[in-house]
């Protein structure tokens, strides 16, 4: 067992362990914080695998943006801060059986398939220079399509979460839209 394998195994244990805590903890906010630990350990795993640019993007977007977004979601849905007993649904044991079966099949396939396969880790294969050249030479068209997708999801999220822009025919009869939710509740 080489040093890289030991480090990766430790990071993998941290990642899987905190992922298990994410799906079993009884406090919503703790689930989001354990998600930070899991993603951070996975970013360390990317570093061991010499994919350094992907590791930093993982830290920036997952740990920095997505977890903060999830915390905002927890806050805005007025979730209880302390322990809540009803976070697990009734089909918990069936879910456990399905997950165990999935794990058994996937781990068996991976171990049998790649037991004797080694890969060499050379530094510099995933640097920002290499990946930037790859993105803007080879994958420029998917990159542009992805920016259109981001724009579409931005517009979609705004349209979904604003409540005062969907009733267009009534705008001219009712110019101020701020008071509408109150009237809605009373109607």
């Amino acid at each position: 067992m080489s040093g890289q394998e030991i480090v990766f195994a430790l990071l993998g244990v941290v990642a899987v362990g905190s992922a298990i805590l994410v799906v079993t903890t009884r406090q919503l906010v703790h689930a989001a914080l354990w998600l930070v630990v899991s993603f951070g350990a996975l970013a360390g795993g990317y570093l061991v695998l010499t994919a350094e640019f992907v590791a930093w993007v993982q830290v920036l977007i997952y740990v920095g943006a997505i977890v903060v977004l999830l915390l905002f979601g927890i806050m805005l849905t007025r979730a209880p801060i302390g322990e809540s007993a009803d976070l697990d649904s009734g089909n918990r044991w069936a879910a456990l059986a399905v997950a165990a079966a999935t794990a058994a099949v996937l781990v068996t396939v991976m171990v049998i398939g790649f037991r004797d396969t080694k890969m060499a880790l050379d530094a510099g294969g995933g640097s920002a220079e290499e990946l930037g050249a790859a993105v803007f030479r080879t994958w420029a068209l998917p990159f542009e399509v992805l920016s259109v997708l981001l724009l579409a999801s931005l517009v979609g999220a705004i349209v979904l979460s604003r409540s005062d822009i969907r009733t267009r025919p009534d705008v001219r009869t009712r110019p101020e839209t701020g008071a509408r939710p109150d009237e809605e509740g009373g109607a």
Binding site: S2, Q4, E5, F8, A9, G12, A15, V16, A19, I20, V22, V23, S38, L42, G45, L49, L87, D88, S89, N91, R92, A94, A95, L96, V98, A99, A100, T102, A103, L106, V107, M110, V111, F114, R115, T117, K118, M119, L121
Partner: peptide
């Protein structure tokens, strides 16, 4: 580095996610 390490970690993470989607 053995290829089995990252793939097994990925498989375990995936099944933990499956459990979370079904049980939460």
């Amino acid at each position: 580095m053995h290829l089995a390490y990252p793939t097994v970690v990925a498989a375990l993470l995936f099944s933990v996610g499956v459990y979370g989607v079904l049980a939460r």
